[in-house]
């Protein structure tokens, strides 16, 4: 039995950043307060001292400017990791991400790939209100030319970065803000990089498929645990990759359980949950024994007070209720 160790999601990211910097001279980290401050979520704490200002590069508050500079540096032979403080701020860089990073390869007839990694925090749960709490992953997952991943576990936080850096195309990594302090077990040593393609079966079960990602995974697993006490056997799928979606794993599960609940912190209208739901209907319609249920955020900017924030976003209770609905129990 190989040795394991416990560390936080934040430490896993820091370790992955450090490893990437050590393994490849072309890698550098750029973003607001990544250096002297140590990162808004302290992911890069201590890295400035180890790697210097050129490679742990504090950028002014110019999301579009430094994201675009990251794209240019990627074109110029570097392997930049751009950190954007939250997905809300990334909207200021949307032009560079969508109009440049995602299009350049196609628009140039295949001449220029953009090997950039963009990391950003996402999601609600910390009472940060309507300009720091949204889940806009699906906006990015909508765009051809981007790869979008959402590590929900410490192992993926540790492993996805290096794989993303090997990808010749832009990869967006969404880190849920409530996960940074979460602990998990990973191998003590060895190669941590993992695939970016496949959804994971986080819990196997026979009765209902619960499909989720990012910060909602732990709530969904908690809901599955509670339902198990009532004899309801849920399968939980962690999507891991939001673009492309791993249809095969989803359909295999739904074909087995014949019921699907999608848990997505994005707003229901135009959500990833809507896309997944459509794909299930297209590809597994005749397997279904009940309408698909979606547990999404309410159609409201995320409010500040804790009780309203909870009410606005998927919770264990709402997931349990949705599962029961598919089973009519």
């Amino acid at each position: 039995m190989s040795k394991t160790r416990t560390l936080t999601y934040r430490d896993a990211i820091r370790e992955a950043l450090r490893e990437a910097m050590q393994r490849d001279d072309r890698v550098f980290l750029m973003g607001e307060d990544v250096g002297r401050y140590g990162g808004a979520y302290a992911c890069s704490k201590g890295l400035l001292e180890e790697f210097g200002e050129a490679r742990i590069r504090d950028a002014p508050l110019s999301e579009s400017g430094f994201t675009g500079a990251g794209i240019g540096a990627a074109l110029g032979g570097m392997r930049p990791i751009v950190e954007i403080m939250t997905v809300n701020f990334s909207l200021l860089a949307l032009d560079q991400i969508v109009n440049t990073a995602a299009t350049l390869r196609h628009m140039s007839g295949g001449q220029f790939s953009v090997p950039i990694v963009i990391r950003m925090a996402t999601g609600a749960g910390r009472q940060l209100a309507a300009q720091h709490s949204h889940s806009l992953e699906c906006w990015f997952a909508h765009v051809p030319g981007l790869r979008v991943v959402a590590p929900a576990t410490v192992a993926d936080a540790r492993g996805m970065l290096w794989t993303a850096l090997q990808d010749p195309d832009p990869v967006i990594i969404f880190e849920h803000a409530t996960l940074y302090n979460e602990e998990g077990e990973i191998a003590a040593e060895g190669e941590f990089s993992c695939d970016l393609d496949k959804a994971a079966i986080s819990r196997s079960g026979r009765d209902v498929s619960l499909i989720t990602y990012s910060g909602s995974l732990s709530k969904t697993l908690d809901a599955a645990q509670r339902l198990a006490e009532d004899g309801i056997d849920c399968e939980v799928i962690d999507l891991r990759s939001l673009r492309p979606l791993d249809d095969a794993t989803i359909m295999k599960s739904v074909n087995k359980t014949t019921r699907a609940v999608i848990v997505d912190e994005g707003w229901r209208s135009g959500s990833l949950a809507g896309e997944i739901s459509a794909r299930i209907v297209e590809q597994a319609f005749y397997s279904l024994d009940a309408p698909i249920e979606r547990v999404c955020s309410e159609e409201v900017p995320i409010p500040y007070p804790s009780h309203l924030e909870k009410a606005a976003t998927p919770q264990v209770e709402s997931i349990v209720a949705a599962v029961r609905k598919t089973l009519r129990t």
């Binding site: 579009s64 400017g65 430094f66 994201t67 675009g68 500079a69 990251g70 794209i71 240019g72 540096a73 990627a74 074109l75 110029g76 032979g77 570097m78 930049p80 032009d95 560079q96 109009n99 440049t100 350049l104 628009m107 140039s108 220029f112």
Partner: peptide
């Protein structure tokens, strides 16, 4: 490197190429 049809969009790209 193009051929950028977003006015101003090429400037950050040029900064990045120079940074590299």
């Amino acid at each position: 490197y193009g051929g950028n049809a977003i006015v101003g969009g090429g400037l950050p790209l040029a900064v990045g190429l120079a940074l590299a």
